[in-house]
Write a protein that binds this DNA or RNA. Structure first.
Lengths: 194, 194
DNA sequence: TCAATTTTGTACTATTTGGTACATTTTATT
DNA sequence: AATAAAATGTACCAAATAGTACAAAATTGA
């Protein structure tokens, strides 16, 4: 043990890499751009990420979704109206800026880009997004149990509806950047969850 | 005039190129793979497509959507129930094979991949997909005029709902490849168009 | 038939790619 | 202070990249 200490935190440099991958995608992200954004040299990088760019991307998918999912679960756990929280979560997409619109969903982008390129990586992204579906399912089931939801539709159907809405919005928001139009579209879709 | 004749049809080689771009995306499609699929050499290619890979992709977007859109319009024009035709159009997605699921939407993929990479190319894809929205809008408006639609929601809202459904499904179908589940999801979403 | 025109195939090139090798630096332990 | 361990920075590399140059081939029209 002992030895020269790392000058960087792996978590932090992965966050920097996420910014690049999210913006341009996996293939278009060059090692040069990634290293520059991460602020470390090749020696350090290939020591910490033996699998190179692919390992970096894989770990970025996991770290990204773990963080977001934890935030969502925390917000739900302290909310007195989790259904409304989820609705607001969707509606708030309309209020973000153009850059965010263009980035879309980190996992959805990976699911699209990795299809027919790297099935293992695609599967990781798929399973991470399905974790969001699980959260939706349980919130919906709970709300139905508490008779706070009119819809008697099965929770898993409604949850997949929300996932499909999520996937759609993250493409559509790149077509329709008008805030008002986006909000109108999202709230129209959310009428199903009533 | 005169001169040695082309041994290929530009339309046909673009169709071959579409197969490659659709499967792996723009960045991941190498010139080598494209030329092999198109069945022509570099000399012929760079003479016919002076803009190289980028021009090929741009023309492929236009050719692809022109063809699909013409098919859709023709089917609508000869249908005695255009709304049902559109519903079936969506539902039939569930019946396609795994490879088709993985490919997603040619335009949607371009909208996602070209964001922050090539705004001009992305815009072309966006405007082509909006042509589909225009078709949906007019079919819905006509159906409302004919009182064949219960919903009194504005046609453009409903059309954008369908575009968002389309965008969503083309990501979701890569997550949920089960035919039954997909059909269930799509028909649930189509209840809005009633 | 021959000249003009256009396409084709191949050889080549300059650049960029992700990745490796390794000497140097920096630390903890003894 | 010496040594072992680990991280770093740089120089390097082989492969793949998109694209170009150009001579040869195939056609039409004079």
């Amino acid at each position: 043990m002992a030895g020269r200490p790392k000058i960087f935190s792996e978590k932090e440099v992965i966050d920097k890499a996420i910014e690049v991958f999210w913006r341009v995608g996996y293939e278009a992200a060059s090692a040069e751009e990634l290293l520059k954004a991460m602020g470390i040299g090749k020696g350090s990088f290939y020591l910490a990420f033996k699998g190179g760019k692919r390992e970096l991307f894989e770990r970025s998918l996991v770290q990204f979704s773990a963080e977001r999912l934890a935030n969502l679960k925390r917000a739900i756990s302290v909310s007195d109206n989790p259904i409304q929280l989820i609705k607001d979560f969707f509606l708030s997409i309309a209020d973000t800026g153009l850059a965010k619109h263009m980035n879309g969903c980190y996992l959805g982008n990976a699911i699209a880009e990795m299809a027919n390129i790297d099935a293992a990586l695609q599967n990781i992204a798929i399973n991470l997004l399905k974790e969001m579906e699980v959260v939706f399912t349980s919130v919906i089931r709970q709300a139905q149990d508490d008779q706070e939801l009119k819809s008697t539709e099965k929770p898993d159907i409604l949850a997949r509806y929300l996932i499909n809405l999520w996937n759609g919005i993250n493409i559509s928001r790149r077509m329709y950047t008008d805030k008002f139009m986006l909000k109108e579209m999202i709230s129209f879709q959310l009428q199903v969850i009533k």
